[in-house]
Amino acid sequence: MSETHHLYEHTSAKDVQWESLSFTERAVLCFVFEGERVLLIHKKRGLGKGKINAPGGRIEPGETALEAAVRETQEEVGLIPIQPQECARLHFLFTDGYSLHGTVFRAFSYKGTLRETEEATPLWSPVSSIPYDRMWEDDKLWIPHLLEGRYVEGFFIFDGDTMLDAHVVTGTLLPPPR
């Protein structure tokens, strides 16, 4: 294996100088809630293909994270989240050198018609039985805090699909949905 492949293999997520990283990409996720259900997708292509996640994707040049969350949700499942609220920041390092900064939003109302696209198959999941075993390994560490209404900051090191280390910090309770 190359030296690059082992870049972060023996590093603790707490030891990485995250604030000085120049992330390879910036992306968003948007969790849309309806009562006791949350909208998830089965990803058909790209990073996380085959996994369950929330709608989301890369932030385009000149676009804010909020604009990207609304656009990506509409493109992937046909829904436009109304008044999405930032609820988490996620930081990922992969042993191959790739890095990703994610901003997570939540919305409690939407307009539009839910549909399947080439990118994703949408599914409503009961909040009480989110399929963590079909998701990225880090999701089970931070999503429960999001469901409690807490702001979350997560730091994760991965080797491919395998999480090597994680550090999750929870913040204050977020304002209730309007």
Score class of each variant (00 low, 15 high):
175 P>M: 05
116 E>H: 08
175 P>T: 07
61 P>M: 12
109 S>R: 08
39 L>E: 10
137 E>L: 03
78 G>H: 01
83 Q>A: 14
63 E>F: 03
68 A>I: 08
15 D>I: 03
118 E>D: 01
58 R>E: 01
10 H>D: 12
42 H>P: 03
37 R>V: 03
131 P>Q: 01
138 D>G: 11
18 W>N: 11
97 G>R: 07
138 D>W: 00
26 R>E: 15
171 G>D: 05
14 K>W: 04
58 R>T: 07
8 Y>P: 03
137 E>H: 08
37 R>D: 14
25 E>Y: 04
48 G>L: 05
88 A>C: 09
115 R>I: 04
62 G>S: 03
142 W>Y: 10
20 S>C: 08
99 S>K: 07
162 T>Y: 02
37 R>Q: 12
91 H>T: 02
130 I>A: 03
130 I>P: 02
53 N>R: 08
21 L>T: 11
40 L>W: 07
69 A>T: 00
151 Y>A: 14
90 L>V: 14
147 L>R: 02
135 M>Q: 09
87 C>T: 15
152 V>S: 01
43 K>F: 06
47 L>P: 01
6 H>P: 00
74 Q>V: 05
46 G>T: 08
73 T>S: 04
158 F>N: 11
25 E>W: 05
42 H>N: 14
21 L>R: 15
54 A>N: 04
173 L>D: 09
148 E>V: 02
101 H>Q: 13
68 A>F: 04
14 K>C: 00
134 R>C: 10
174 L>Q: 02
149 G>Y: 03
36 E>K: 11
79 L>N: 13
107 A>N: 06
53 N>H: 03
45 R>K: 13
52 I>S: 07
3 E>M: 12
125 S>L: 00
17 Q>T: 10
48 G>N: 10
109 S>Y: 01
104 V>Q: 05
